[in-house]
């Protein structure tokens, strides 16, 4: 019959009109600034630099300015200048550090390739999305001071991933310490026996990208509401 399809359609819209008043499956809108949906753990937006010490973020960056991310970044939004001198990292090992580390968030497309290629777990994806600003140029160019965020923040936004990273780093550090101990023991043995015995290389965690010497991670802490 002519018009039956139209009447059927009108019935559907009427059902939705009524349903939107009582059925949450039909009324899916959230009133954004007041209500917020929970961000999924995997949500990513813009990178940040992980710092081990919350009280001195710039001084305790994990980044050793190897510049891999700078090379791999597809839109080339990262700019790094390596330091001239070395300074001890969290574990006390002498490392270079980024004298300049800038990310242009107006160029960054949050693809997280920098995170995937970083061998030091030094750069991770943030979850900020409200960084709109009327300043077009300078306000969107983040320097290392703005990028550095403590590990506790990372544990808070990506708990599962951060726990894995922390465990891996702790294992690496332990292996490093054991290696150092073994080396020391070997050196002692060598000194005692006056015979050289080079220590075997320590094994690293299976799934980790090669991260030979990043000791000095703090043990995982419960997320704090910073």
């Amino acid at each position: 019959m002519l018009g039956s399809g139209i009447i059927q359609g009108l019935a559907v819209t009427a059902k939705n009109l009524v349903g939107s008043f009582h059925d949450p499956a039909r009324f899916t809108t959230t009133q954004y600034p007041e209500e917020r949906t929970k961000l999924p753990e995997n949500y990513r937006n813009f990178p940040f630099l992980v710092a081990d010490a919350a009280n001195d973020p710039i001084g305790s960056l994990r980044c050793v300015a190897c510049q891999i991310c700078e090379k791999e970044c597809p839109p080339q939004c990262i700019y790094i200048e390596k330091s001239k001198d070395k300074k001890p990292d969290a574990a006390g090992k002498q490392q270079f550090f980024p004298a300049v580390f800038d990310i242009d968030t107006s160029v960054c497309m949050s693809c997280q390739i920098c995170v995937e290629v970083c061998p030091f777990d030094a750069i991770k994806m943030d979850q900020v999305f409200e960084i709109a600003t009327p300043e077009r140029f300078n306000a969107l160019l983040l320097d290392r001071g703005q990028l550095a965020k403590p590990n506790t923040y990372y544990q808070q936004i990506h708990p599962t991933e951060a726990a894995e990273v922390d465990a891996r780093l702790a294992a690496d550090r332990k292996a490093g310490e054991e290696k150092a101990k073994a080396a020391a023991a070997a050196a002692a043995a060598k000194a005692a026996a006056a015979k050289a015995a080079p220590a075997a290389p320590a094994s690293t965690a299976p799934s980790a990208p090669k991260s030979p010497a990043v000791p000095g991670t703090e043990a995982p802490k419960p997320p704090t509401t910073a």
Binding site: N16, S20, F21, T28, T29
Partner: peptide, 13 residues
């Protein structure tokens, strides 16, 4: 408002 409700939105509020 009505069209919004039909479309499962709150409409201007």
């Amino acid at each position: 408002k009505i069209i919004a409700r039909v479309q499962n939105r709150p409409g201007p509020n």
